[in-house]
């Protein structure tokens, strides 16, 4: 099994900000947002302090799994432009320190969630951390091109954890939110990997464009998009989303599909060197003409998912009555 062994030279001493960077704060903010949406959509009265603790536990749990990921993946992070300045490969933080931080924060977040909220939410949080750190990072990522498809479950679970924290149960609609993020993950990451595949290739990570080629990846993005767009409409039929949600999901889904079709017809991912300098803050978006269709879908996917969850959050906070186009007797 591959293992993180990185040779580092003398560097500046670790600052507290380096430990914050180990927690991937930007990813954490997305996880907090989707977890909060699940908690609000549960529609149960919950003490504001306990709600805050639940969100904190979800955030810390996400940070813990990020730290474990950075410990294990330091060797491949060192080979990729996007990740080589992370604290462990850059030599500012020892791998053992990242491992310790990840384990300690995992234990604290799960125990606190269990004691303050309920053990269903704590169990789901523990499963999510374990799935990301062990199943995705240690097993799937270096082994199969389906790594981000299966591993995407870890990123899709926070709304279910939030729902469980508030309601003590995980009904159909909670898993529907999970399914939406799960189906969103492949088009999102594969669009990005179409113009970052050289990095993955160099690091030996079997991302889809590296293993199956750009054309196959573009085709698979289109298939997942064709499944994802209609799935986003389902909450309007199950008593979760209201009329605004339906409009946002339908219009956004249409744009998502059109961008996926344009990408499928393009030659994105076939030429090498499709990125400009990624040292700048907008590095992931700064691409050459050949990769623009992939970049556009990647950027829109973030916007679309944010809009979907923000709309659900807004509707539930403002008390907009959800639609229930199909009466299936689904427990909410």
């Amino acid at each position: 099994m591959a293992m993180a062994t990185v040779h580092t030279t003398a560097h500046a001493p670790a600052r507290w900000q380096d430990y914050v960077q180990l927690l991937k704060p930007r990813v954490m903010s997305l996880v907090v947002f989707t977890g909060l949406t699940g908690m609000i959509c549960a529609g149960r009265a919950i003490h504001p302090v306990l709600a805050g603790v639940a969100i904190l536990c979800i955030a810390v749990g996400a940070g813990a799994s990020a730290s474990l990921n950075m410990w294990y993946d330091a060797d491949i992070d060192a080979k990729m432009r996007r990740t080589r300045n992370r604290p462990v490969p850059a030599g500012r933080v020892q791998g053992a320190d990242a491992l310790t931080l990840g384990v300690v924060l995992s234990i604290f977040s799960v125990m606190l969630m269990g004691m303050a909220l309920n053990w269903l939410a704590a169990g789901l949080l523990a499963f999510t951390i374990g799935f990301y750190a062990v199943v995705y990072t240690i097993w799937l990522k270096r082994w199969t091109a389906q790594n981000i498809v299966i591993g995407g479950l870890a990123g899709a679970l926070p709304p279910v954890i939030g729902w469980a924290a508030a309601a003590g149960a995980t009904p159909f609609n909670a898993w529907l939110l999970c399914a939406i993020i799960f189906m969103w993950t492949p088009p999102h990451f594969w669009a990005l990997s179409l113009y970052t595949s050289e990095d993955y290739e160099k690091a030996g990570v079997p991302m889809m464009p590296v293993v199956a080629g750009a054309a196959s990846t573009r085709r698979q993005i289109l298939i997942y998009s064709a499944l994802f767009a209609p799935l986003c409409l389902v909450p309007a039929a199950t008593g979760l989303g209201g009329p605004v949600y339906l409009a946002v999901a339908a219009l956004g889904g249409l744009v998502f599909l059109l961008l996926a079709i344009r990408l499928a017809r393009s030659h994105a991912g076939e030429a090498r060197g499709q990125r400009n300098d990624d040292a700048s803050p907008g590095g992931l978006y700064d691409v050459r003409a050949g990769a623009r269709d992939a970049r556009n879908l990647f950027a829109f996917s973030i916007l679309y998912l944010t809009l979907l969850f923000a709309t659900l959050l807004g509707e539930h906070l403002m008390g907009v009555a959800p639609l229930n186009l199909v009466s299936w007797g689904i427990p909410r």
Partner: peptide
């Protein structure tokens, strides 16, 4: 001085 400052920052955090 840099190492001391970094350590102080970590301890406070």
């Amino acid at each position: 001085e840099v190492e001391l400052k970094a350590r102080r920052g970590r301890n406070i955090a």
